[in-house]
Structure formats: structure tokens, C-alpha cells
Design a protein around this nucleic acid. Structure first.
Length: 277
DNA sequence: CAACCTGTTCGCCA
DNA sequence: ATGGCGAACAGGTT
């Protein structure tokens, strides 16, 4: 499951609860996911409020709650799943949180649950008539018209010495792209993950831009239809040593590049020197 | 027991 | 000041 699409899928998990009123809130006060949040204020604001809107952007989600009383401000709950976070909608009047259910919003007949085994996720809390500044300041999604080839190219030059793999993981420019998607994009573009970003010739920049948009759009489309990715994608082959390139059959390479485990095909993504076309 | 992991942030260094 | 890198964060799984 790719990063961007899983976040959209997660948003849809809570979405059926739109319109429902929150009766009580249970928060794991010791948990890192709440770093920086005033838990008492969050709890007070949410109890009696009703889920009103849901949104996903890159790896971020934002849930809006109508306040319990008129004259109070709208409540905004930001959610980032981190490495292992997940959202759940539990069909029960009195949900009992398990060990890693750090944020539970109990509505009339079901509970909205944020579960996170590794505590790398994050919950944000804001109030106000409009979505918080951190949300509106998020970079344009890679599937949006604002994600231009020129903008991408400028970023490649700014990060010219960093490996492409690492650059694709930078959320400030590639929101929603994670480890798996980055490998898929580079494989499709025929670019070696260790290639310095600034060394790409215009043709390679165009391919990178196109494949970034393709992989993002296609993975979002896939979640409406299948659960798995076609065998023609790198996804189903990349996770285990011994996997083979679905295009040429060569055994995939694996190494840490850009700080993360990376899989690539040495034949379809040869290491090149100088200007990379 | 050790290595691994769909992510971000921080401190250090060039 | 800016960019690049490695470590740290936690805890379950292989």
C-alpha cells in the first residue's frame, strides 16, 4: 500500500462518521503523538462537537468538528500516521481502547480511533473559523496543476548534490511520496536512485515529473478498484530480497540510499556519469 | 539476539 | 545561510 493512497484511504475510514457528535474523548497523555498539544483543551473542545469535514493532503489529514456551542470556534484535528499509524471506526457505544489506541473519540454508536504502535504519528489541535495555517501552507499535491515541471526542476537544482531517492522523499516538494512510491517512480523513469538530482538533463526531468504524477494518480485510482498492485509494477517485487524486475527479469538490487532501503533494477536504471538523459 | 521498518526531526558538519 | 547526512524516536516482527 503506497503512502499517498493509504492516507486517502484512512481519511475515508472516518468519513462515514461525518455529522456524528462526540460524547467522550480518551487520550493517552503520555504518548508522543500529542507532542505540543494541550490535551485538556483538546478534550474540552471536542466533547459535544460533531465531525463536520474530512480532508487528506499528502501524508496529512485534517478533520473539522463543529463546536458544541454556538459562538465557539471550529475545532481542527490534524492527523499524521507516521510509520505505523492507522485510523479505525469501531461500531460500539463504549469502545475500550487497546494498548496502542492513543486517541479515541466516542460518538453515539461508534468510536473514531487513532492507533499507532510506534508513536511516530502525530495529532495536532487547532481552533478557529478556518483551517489552521500549517494546513493551508502545505505544498501543492503532485497531482495538482500547480505541481509544475519548472517547479520540480528548480527543486532538483537546489538539491543538486542529493541522491534522487532522498529528494523524492522531501515532503516540502513531493507531499505524500514515501519509500515505496519513490522507488516505483525512479524505476519507471529509468533513473538510478543514487543519481545526483542536479545532474538530470531536461528529458530526464520531464520523465521524473511525468512518472511522479502517474504513480500518484494511479495509486489513488487503484484504491477504488483493487487492493493490490498489478505484477507489472515494481511494488509487489521490491519488498523482499530476491525479487526480480517485472520489466527485464533481472534480480533487483537493494541498498540504503537517501537514508532508506531502496530497491532498483541495475539494467533498467543504470548508474550513469555526467549529464543524465 | 540482531536486523529491519510505508517517517520526521534534530544536531552536526561542510 | 543553506544543504546533506546520520542518529534518534518505539516497539513489534522477522
Amino acid at each position: 500500500m503506497p503512502e499517498l493512497a493509504e492516507v486517502e484511504l484512512s481519511r475515508r475510514i472516518w468519513e462515514p462518521a461525518v455529522g456524528e457528535r462526540i460524547r467522550s474523548v480518551r487520550l493517552n497523555e503520555k504518548c508522543r503523538i500529542f507532542r505540543g498539544v494541550d490535551l485538556a483543551a483538546l478534550s474540552t473542545a471536542l466533547v459535544g462537537s460533531a465531525l463536520h469535514s474530512t480532508a487528506a493532503r499528502g501524508k496529512q489529514m485534517l478533520f473539522g468538528f463543529r463546536p458544541a456551542r454556538r459562538r465557539e470556534a471550529e475545532v481542527w484535528l490534524g492527523v499524521h500516521l507516521g510509520m505505523a499509524g492507522s485510523l479505525h471506526l469501531e461500531a460500539t457505544k463504549n469502545f475500550q481502547p487497546a494498548k496502542h489506541d492513543h486517541c479515541v473519540l466516542q460518538a453515539e454508536r461508534r468510536a473514531l480511533v487513532f492507533r499507532d504502535v510506534r508513536h511516530f504519528g502525530r495529532v495536532r489541535f487547532d481552533t478557529g473559523p478556518t483551517p489552521p495555517a500549517w494546513w493551508t501552507a502545505l505544498p501543492p499535491e503532485v497531482t495538482a496543476p500547480e505541481f509544475t515541471l519548472a517547479g520540480l526542476s528548480e527543486f532538483l537544482d537546489r538539491r543538486r548534490r542529493a541522491p534522487l531517492k532522498g529528494v523524492l522523499l522531501m515532503q516540502e516538494r513531493f507531499p505524500g511520496i514515501g519509500n515505496w512510491m519513490a522507488d516505483e517512480i525512479l524505476w519507471r523513469a529509468g533513473l538510478h536512485p543514487a543519481t545526483p538530482a542536479g545532474s538530470l538533463a531536461p528529458a530526464a526531468r520531464l520523465r521524473l515529473w511525468e512518472e511522479t504524477r502517474f504513480v500518484a494518480a494511479e495509486s489513488l485510482r487503484q484504491i477504488d478498484e483493487h487492493w493490490d498492485y498489478p505484477a507489472s509494477w515494481l511494488f509487489p517485487h521490491r519488498w523482499r530480497p530476491g525479487g526480480h524486475c517485472p520489466r527485464c527479469g533481472l534480480e533487483l538490487e537493494r541498498a540504503t540510499i537517501g537514508g532508506r532501503t531502496t530497491a532498483w533494477c541495475e539494467r533498467c536504471q543504470p548508474r550513469r556519469r555526467g549529464r543524465v538523459r
